[in-house]
Amino acid sequence: MSRRLGFAVLGLLLVLRLLSALSGYDPVADLTPELRSAGPSASHWLGTDHLGRDVARRLLHGTAAFVEPGLLAALLTVGIGLAAGVLSGARGGVSGAAAAWLMGVVAAIPGLVLVLLGLSIYGGSADAAAGSSQIWWIAGFCGVICAPALSGAVTARLQALIRAEFVVAARAHGISPARILFYHLLWVNTRGLVLRHALRAFTQMVVLETTLSYLGGFGVPEPTPSWGNMLAFELGVVEGNPWAWLAPALAIWLGVVGIYGLSEATGEANVG
């Protein structure tokens, strides 16, 4: 059930992102002062926020704040975590110990602190122009902070499998160590685990963007829409349109629960 729901949510997010890319949106032009905090109507399905901007359209275009950055974060997590996991789980030696140590150092620092520290050095501007590149920095840091969990999981999996009887049998059949490692151990026996952590990194990106936008100054700056800044922007408004903050809040909740559920349901199913 969580698998189907997760796929549905992930699919929906990707479709929404595609629609937003195809439709185009100017966040500055989308301003109707006479329609501030209006309720849902035929022309504004979810009403407007307290500046008179269409909530549904902003919700749609807010997907840009995490879909591609989320994919980047997932890719980075897989790249870094897999490389470090293979080094420490299969190669060992000095390079393996160094990889495990490095992942340990990253894991020892609270993720949000590491991201804020990184953004204060490389990003951190609330300026809209700088904000477009800032989300990529957030994605980069998100990929890094999610990598140690994958690295540790891959290390443990490889250490458990590398002396397994089927590996001995495969070697005795003349299968090369490289094929055994990359195909049998990583692709056949570990890819579910990797996919699970990639989905977690994607989810983490949604949470991180929301958190940083909510904290102010570090997330996606206004007027560019993101679910995080929509929520932060409307929560304090007295007598506003409740859908202006309820819609992004529900979207964040559904997105995170759906994809996280998918990541939990992914992994150990038989593949052969």
Binding site: E165, A169, N270
Partner: peptide, 11 residues
């Protein structure tokens, strides 16, 4: 191998 089941790729 001695352990037949263990000698086959589990997945």
């Amino acid at each position: 191998p001695q352990d037949g089941r263990g000698g086959l790729d589990p997945l």
